[in-house]
Simulated scan of single mutants.
Amino acid sequence: GGWRIVQTMGQRITKLKPVGGFCAETGGAITLFLATAMGIPVSTTHTITGAIVGVGSVQRASAVRWGVAGNIVWAWIFTIPAAAAMAAVCYWASFILY
């Protein structure tokens, strides 16, 4: 799965060149350091994805494949309730099994 994620981030959202990758990583790192210093919990994956979209949109808005970026955002939105539902099922099953 790792290579698929790298390919999606670096080629499917927008075509990253080395300088764009450097800027995205630097911007993401600064964001993470600032959030950590302020005690704000953030996701590294969300941060770098936002930085990559930012690099692509600075080139031009049409450089970003907004459909791919939208699919990623929807996956993030559905992950939280799905994880909550699975945790509830496991919790319920633990009472039945013990």
Rank of each mutant, 00 (worst) to 15 (best):
R12L: 10
M86C: 04
G67E: 09
P41Y: 02
V73W: 05
Q59K: 15
G70Q: 15
I77N: 01
G10E: 11
A61D: 12
T45H: 13
M9D: 00
R65D: 11
I72R: 01
P18V: 04
V64T: 01
A75G: 13
V53A: 05
P18M: 06
A69C: 06
T8M: 13
I72A: 00
I13K: 00
R4E: 12
T31H: 08
I5Q: 14
A35G: 03
C23D: 07
T44K: 08
R65T: 06
F95Y: 11
M9S: 01
G2S: 07
Q11N: 09
G2V: 07
W66Q: 11
S62H: 04
V19G: 01
V64G: 01
T45K: 08
T44C: 04
W66Y: 13
T45A: 03
L32F: 08
A61R: 15
H46D: 07
G1I: 04
A93L: 09
T14G: 04
T45V: 06
T8A: 09
A69M: 05
V55H: 01
M38E: 14
T36K: 12
L97F: 08
W3H: 12
S94Q: 09
M38L: 15
G39K: 11
A63D: 13
H46V: 05
A37N: 07
A85V: 09
W92Y: 12
K17Y: 14
W3N: 11
F22E: 10
I40Q: 06
E25P: 00
A85F: 05
W74V: 15
I96Y: 05
G67R: 09
I30E: 15
V58S: 11
A37C: 07
V73A: 12
V73E: 06
P41V: 03
C23Y: 14
W76P: 05
R4F: 09
A35K: 01
V19I: 14
F22G: 05
I13H: 00
S57Y: 02
K15A: 13
Q11E: 13
T49R: 03
I77H: 00
W74C: 13
W3D: 13
A37L: 12
V89D: 02
G21W: 02
P41G: 02
G2F: 10
T26V: 13
F33E: 08
F95K: 10
